[in-house]
Amino acid sequence: MLNVLEVNIESAGYETGNAKVHHIQFEVGTGQLVGLIGPNGAGKSTTIKTILGTMQEVKGEIRIGDGTGIYAYVPEQPILYDTLTLWEHLQLASAAHEIPEETLHERADELLEMFQLQEVKHHFPSTFSKGMQQKLMLIIAFILKPALYIVDEPFVGLDPRATGRFLRMLQAEKERGAGVLMCTHVLDTAERVCDSFILLHQGQIVARGTLDEVRAVSGIPDGTLFECFEALT
């Protein structure tokens, strides 16, 4: 298995001398979905920002894909332009990544139909609900078809039907060979769909690996991910 993400963070924080995470080391392989979990304040956001290159105080190294640094990031809070329609958002993203117009239409039509946004593709997302905005962020990511997805709390605002469609798309992208790093508090879903886990607590990794490996560290041989989470944090 090739790695599409290699993380080696010695320390990272928002200001000099005040690191929020220490010794964060893990990989995401092709076709692998890794869950990044932990309580509030554990260092998940700092870890993601470090991977994205938006933290200034960092000691360590991040390697994405083949070294080009191309990935799709879906933030917890949708980031959209008030003056662009849904379709114009898709055009902007595809142009930035040099996706041909024909390919954009082919991919977008299927995704818009899947997430039930076809009828509002020429509307402004500022008029959308949070769930509709989140769907648009997911569509933009899936149109790019990158080697790596970084997804932060993707289930917030999605109804059960949209959640199912999102998970099926993730599975299809895994089968294509993409890797996924997913940060979530929805542990029952994470337990069902993730191949392995990175469990953070107080800025450090307290467990990593498959569910069985996390169970071994937590001392709960038959525990759920939630039970292991409670025991370790």
Rank of each mutant, 00 (worst) to 15 (best):
E76D: 15
P78A: 13
I79T: 11
L80C: 07
Y81K: 09
D82R: 15
L86F: 15
L86I: 09
L86Q: 05
H89A: 03
H89L: 03
L90C: 07
Q91I: 11
L92P: 01
L92Q: 04
A95V: 07
A96P: 00
H97W: 11
H97A: 13
E98W: 05
P100S: 12
P100E: 13
E101K: 15
E101W: 15
E102H: 13
E102T: 05
E102K: 14
T103W: 10
H105K: 07
E106M: 10
R107E: 10
A108T: 02
L111S: 06
L111D: 10
L112A: 02
M114K: 10
F115R: 02
E119Q: 08
V120N: 01
H123F: 05
S129F: 07
K130H: 10
K130W: 08
G131S: 03
M132S: 01
Q133R: 15
K135Q: 10
K135F: 08
F142R: 08
F142V: 02
I143T: 15
I143C: 14
L144F: 00
L144S: 01
K145Q: 15
K145Y: 01
I150G: 02
V151C: 11
V151T: 09
V156D: 13
V156F: 06
G157M: 14
L158N: 09
L158Y: 11
D159I: 06
P160A: 08
R161I: 11
A162Y: 04
T163P: 04
T163S: 14
G164A: 09
G164E: 12
F166G: 04
L167N: 09
R168A: 14
R168W: 00
M169H: 06
L170I: 09
L170D: 00
Q171M: 07
Q171H: 07
Q171D: 14
Q171F: 05
E175R: 04
R176E: 11
R176C: 06
G177C: 08
A178E: 03
G179R: 02
V180W: 02
M182S: 05
M182R: 00
T184I: 05
T184Y: 03
